[in-house]
Design a protein around this nucleic acid. Structure first.
Lengths: 175, 175
DNA sequence: CTGCCTGCAAAGGATTTGCACTCAT
DNA sequence: ATGAGTGCAAATCCTTTGCAGGCAG
């Protein structure tokens, strides 16, 4: 009765996106377990990534709850922490106080990016409007010169994609 | 018995630092009241400023409590908010999740710095080590080119001193 | 005097943790 | 089978808010 293996595993096993697939692979190679909760979180984050959205832990929790009511909020927090630790996810600190997550891009991995917290790179810097909260991607490399200068002047190794810069977007600027 | 005016006003009226004095002046001109709570907060923030420390609301509350036990925590929060609104204080969002306060430097005021929240400028950018949490002052003008480019490319008006950049400091980098 | 500011206390919201149980491996 | 992960619920932590009274101007 344990379920005859039909051709279509009718489950919730909608074919995973290649990115989620890759993330799962990295998870397994890291010796971590693949669970429904983790899968749900990865799907939500991936979908948001594709839509260029930046979600906070709370928002991710809400969306996960919508798809998988069985997954508890606390688990989402724990999952975000562990997946970030494994390097499957990474986060960016936005202006105000929010931290948003996204799939880590191991491909475009940055040279010296051995941040203990698994804090990684989205590949590019973000700027956020303090007025409307919108988050924009900064042109690639905008911070390269700054990084070089900080390294030369202070010996400080800048992580260009870990924190967003604040300011006012075009729309809010002139209304 | 109302207190003969001796040469030394033994009170807690330790002569105020010129910066606090200036802040009080600005407060009054703004039509705001000068109260013990506000004075206590200004003293704490000023002292930290001098010591190149960056304090969070919570830390400020703790120090205020040490000097003026009568001042309630809630009042400290309200005070930080109002003083920031008045432009007497300003804050910087650090990496993790903290917001630190300091006296606003009206002198070195920045041209177009009409941030609604009273979020102002310390005059320069900050960089924070994600490993040890230390906050360093960035060389003046490091973000000028970035600001220019963001304005040209995105019409985004960067507030160079509102958020700290993250990275790894020299000490933590090589141990 | 007048009403801006405060103290107090309780509400709130987000994230964390202890514990026992379940399921991925 | 075994222990990494999880669900649940309670506990924290930080910050905010409603109200009545007090003090600055």
């Amino acid at each position: 009765v344990s379920g005859p293996s039909r051709s279509v595993p009718s489950d919730e096993s909608q074919r995973e996106s290649p990115r989620v697939e890759a993330a799962l692979g990295r998870l397994r190679s890291a010796g971590e377990r693949v669970t429904p909760a983790r899968l749900a979180v990865l799907r939500v984050v991936d979908a948001a990534d594709v839509a260029d959205e930046h979600l906070t832990a709370e928002q991710i929790g809400a969306r996960v709850a919508a798809h998988e009511p069985a997954v508890h909020r606390a688990t989402v927090y724990r999952t975000l922490t562990s997946l970030t630790g494994t390097g499957v996810l990474s986060h960016v600190h936005l202006g105000g106080t929010a931290t948003v997550y996204h799939l880590a891009h191991p491909a475009r991995a940055v040279p010296a990016n051995a941040d203990e917290t698994g804090t990684a790179t989205h590949g590019h810097a973000h700027v956020q409007c303090s007025s409307c909260g919108r988050v924009l991607d900064a042109p690639a490399g905008v911070l390269d010169d700054v990084a070089r200068r900080l390294r030369d002047d202070l010996g400080f190794e800048l992580d260009t994609s870990h924190a967003a810069l604040l300011g006012t977007c075009a729309e809010c600027a002139q209304g």
